[in-house]
């Protein structure tokens, strides 16, 4: 319940509770007179402290699924529950990091991180406490020296790190990440993957991210859920049994990326590593 940085839940702690459950969830869109099935009925469980990656080509409904979990849209059928409670609308317990940073340009870096705290009961009307918490989150993403900078003064990678700090500050139960990295160059991305895993190990946060980059999926995910398109369907779930922190250029990560890619292309046995 607190946003302190030192909070640490062992990632290997034995049987973890189910955090998020998707039961028979499907989504159809009405396009004129046509009904388009975006997501075929699917079942999925995400455990406490688990990092799950939705992987698939564009049009496979992985972003739609993320929007359903965030509560921006309602499923056409089925139910999504967080800690047993059904999800009906957006909320601070499921914060989303967007493809574009979505930081507010009229606020300084630290005020952006403080933004979500203003609505937290234990922080409300306590600006000193908000500032302290925001500062510790900025420290975690290595931007403590930029707290009074304006958003447009930051580089693309720094903006995404501020966005990460802002999403983590209100201590959401689940962090949702919608492909926030493709706009960045490889070097910056590598650094961000490191930061993200570091935060993961330190806070034990439950994270779901969406990507069409198999390397990113293998580097970040405890479990990679492979989707096939039209309608979106879960093809396979792959557990990535590699110690953290993982390096995006590690050959073992590349091996897993190959397996993930092969799953998608329908050749499950080729390239399979032992």
């Amino acid at each position: 319940m607190n946003a302190s940085v030192s909070k640490s839940t062992g990632r290997s702690a034995a049987p973890r509770a189910v955090k998020l459950r998707l039961a028979n969830v499907s989504k159809t869109f009405q396009n004129g007179t046509q009904t388009v099935e975006a997501l075929a009925p699917l079942e999925l469980e995400v455990k406490e402290g688990e990092y799950v990656v939705f992987f698939g080509p564009s049009g496979c409904g992985k972003s739609t699924l993320l929007n359903l979990i965030a509560g921006f849209e309602a499923p056409s059928a089925g139910e999504i529950t967080l800690e047993g409670r059904p999800i009906t609308r957006p909320g601070r317990d499921r914060l989303m990091m967007f493809q574009e940073h979505a930081l507010f340009p009229w606020l300084s870096v630290i005020k952006n991180v403080m933004y979500g705290l203003k609505n937290e009961p234990q922080f409300r009307f306590r600006p000193r406490k908000q500032r302290e918490a925001a500062r510790s989150w900025l420290k975690m993403v290595h931007l403590e020296e930029f707290e009074s900078a304006l958003i447009h003064e930051l580089s693309g990678g720094m903006k995404q790190r501020v966005a990460l700090a802002r999403a983590l500050a209100p201590d959401p139960k689940v962090l949702l990440i919608d492909e926030p990295f493709p706009a960045l160059d490889a070097l910056v991305r590598g650094k961000l993957y490191g930061d993200l895993q570091d935060i993961l190990t330190r806070t034990g946060k439950t994270i779901i991210s969406v990507t069409h980059d198999s390397r990113e999926a293998a580097c970040l995910g405890d479990r990679v859920v492979v989707f096939t398109p039209r309608p979106g369907r879960i093809k396979k779930e792959i557990h990535v049994d590699l110690a953290r922190p993982r390096d995006i250029n590690d050959p073992k990560v590349a091996e897993y990326a190959g397996r993930i890619m092969a799953e998608l292309e329908g050749q499950p046995d080729e390239k399979r590593a032992g």
Partner: peptide, 12 residues
């Protein structure tokens, strides 16, 4: 619209 979405998820 992204600003409004972000603000909404952050509890505004």
């Amino acid at each position: 619209p992204l600003y409004l979405r972000a603000a909404r998820t952050l509890g505004t």
